[in-house]
Structure formats: C-alpha cells, structure tokens
C-alpha cells in the first residue's frame, strides 16, 4: 500500500455506456489547455500546428478564452514550448489534470442534453464546431458539438463522476 494515492483517470471505474440512441464514454485524460488573452482562433490554431499539436481541437470558451484539447498527454517540455510561443498578453493554464472530457453521441444525444442545459442545440443554432460554456443542471460544463450527433462535455475533475452518473441516469 503506497503512502500516497497514485494518479488514475477519475472515470476509470465507469464503463462506456451504449444505450438506445445514446453512447456515453469518458475520453482519455490527455491534455486540456486553457488559453486566455488578446489573440484569435486562427493565430492559436497556427501556433498549435507549429507546436506539432495538429490533432488537438481548439475550442472557443467565451470572450478571448479557448480550450485546446487532445487525447495525448503533454510532457513539461512540450507545454513549455507552447507557452514560449504564445504572443504577449496571452496566457495559458494547463488544465490537463483539472478537467475531464466526456463524449456523448447518438441520435438521442441532443434530447438528453436538453434535459440539463438551456442552450439551444438545434442544428440551425448550434451546428458542428459550436461550443458553449453553460450549466448542466448545477454543474458548469463546456459543451462542444463535435459531430452531427456527437458532443463533448469538458467538466471540472471533481464534478466528473457526478456529471457522468447524472448522464447515465438521464440516458436510461
């Protein structure tokens, strides 16, 4: 028995759920980088690409705020390279251990999400690539539409289990 608990994915105990029209799964705890400051999505995209993070998604999270997310963990060196490349007045906070991503997909995904959030999820208002920082019940989440019937929820790590259980409950 080690003196200190070892780091493990917070949703490791939760199995992916495949229900009627709903698939719910925890995504690998790769990297979640929060960027704030006077820059643009295009500039940040170029910066991530030049840092070799072509597979990472860049998601707006409000006025001058973004999340850069991906499935692969970043080492300190890779992170430092991005921080160094940031333009002046732009700041990065590594949230890789602070936030967890959950994927929700299926034909009933929007129906399920509508039970918890007030954001209009109709195709005409929230098309693929759209993001929103909002509440799901009482839990703050960052919601992104990654596909026609596919969504990703980024949530604070300590709320991840509660949110996952809630989604499981609602998917039933």
């Amino acid at each position: 028995m080690p003196d200190f608990p070892t780091s493990r994915p917070v949703l490791a105990g939760k199995s992916a759920r495949h229900g009627k029209g709903i698939t719910l799964e925890a995504l690998p705890e790769g990297h979640v980088l929060q960027v704030m400051g006077a820059t643009t999505s295009a500039d940040l995209r170029a910066l991530l690409d030049s840092a070799g993070l072509t597979g990472s998604a860049l998601r707006p999270a409000g006025y001058r705020q973004w999340y850069a997310v991906g499935d692969t963990p970043l080492d300190a060196q890779a992170l430092q390279a991005i921080v160094t490349a940031l333009p002046p007045g732009t700041y990065l906070s590594d949230q890789s251990h602070g936030r967890v991503r959950i994927r929700l997909s299926g034909t009933r995904a929007t129906e399920l999400l509508s039970k918890g959030t007030a954001v209009d999820l109709h195709d005409s208002a929230f098309s693929v690539g759209h993001t929103a920082t909002t509440l799901f019940g009482h839990i703050s989440v960052h919601l992104s539409r990654t596909g026609e019937t596919e969504f990703e929820l980024t949530v604070l790590r300590s709320f991840a289990e509660a949110l996952y259980s809630e989604l499981e409950e609602l998917a039933a």
Binding site: G62, Y63, D120, L135
Partner: peptide, 10 residues
C-alpha cells in the same frame, strides 16, 4: 453579448 441567449440561473 458573447454567449447568446441564456437563462438567468447562469
């Protein structure tokens, strides 16, 4: 102005 229409609970 940044997020669009949202409920007052937010």
């Amino acid at each position: 102005p940044h997020c669009g229409q949202r409920p007052k609970e937010e």
